[in-house]
């Protein structure tokens, strides 16, 4: 029944080794962080929540189209900027009316942040935004903007990076 290589280590030493390991672990400090009392120290690249810097957004819709579960809602309209006194022509600009992310659908893949050509979206490590009503997980433009304050500065590049 038993394979020959099992006899290399006797039964008793293995059992004693196991008990020694657990005893050693018991005398060392526990790894537990008592979360609600002790806040975790999260690395800057933690995927907690997505923040929006609305000034940078051009309503290009790239994020909304790349989103795998379509949880980004964007409404915008065009405004005409009249030509100056020196001649020239009227110009048009996109104005962002609504930018919302439904975090009940979001799967935190970060593709929207990667794809944004104008650096309007950022990861923030904040994660305490649970709601009792799932509809409150839809964060509108102003709420997404509030997360900007929690966005950490980008981590320094590794030594030797080019």
């Amino acid at each position: 029944m038993s394979r020959p290589d099992q006899h290399k280590h006797g039964l008793v030493p293995g059992l004693v080794k196991g008990m020694a390991t657990t005893a050693r672990t018991m005398t060392s400090h526990a790894h537990t962080q008592e979360y609600p009392d002790v806040k975790p120290e999260l690395p800057p690249r933690s995927r907690g929540v997505i923040a929006l810097l609305a000034e940078n957004c051009t309503s290009c819709m790239l994020c909304a189209r790349e989103c795998p579960d379509w949880c980004i809602y964007i409404d915008s309209h065009k405004e005409t900027i009249p030509a100056g006194p020196e001649g020239g022509r009227d110009r048009q600009q996109n104005v962002l009316d609504r930018f919302a992310i439904d975090f009940s659908l979001c799967m935190y893949c970060g593709i929207c942040i990667e794809v944004c050509p104008f650096d309007a979206l950022f990861w923030s490590p904040e994660f305490e935004y649970a709601e009792t009503d799932i509809r409150d997980m839809l964060h509108e433009k102003d709420r997404l903007g509030e997360w900007m304050a929690t966005v950490p500065p980008p981590p320094a590049t590794d030594p030797g990076a080019q």
Binding site: T22, A23, T25, M26, S28, A30, H31, T32, E34
Partner: peptide, 13 residues
């Protein structure tokens, strides 16, 4: 408690 600390946890707190 003993099992928790043997597994590097705190157990019920």
């Amino acid at each position: 408690k003993v099992m928790a600390h043997m597994q590097g946890r705190l157990g019920p707190m």
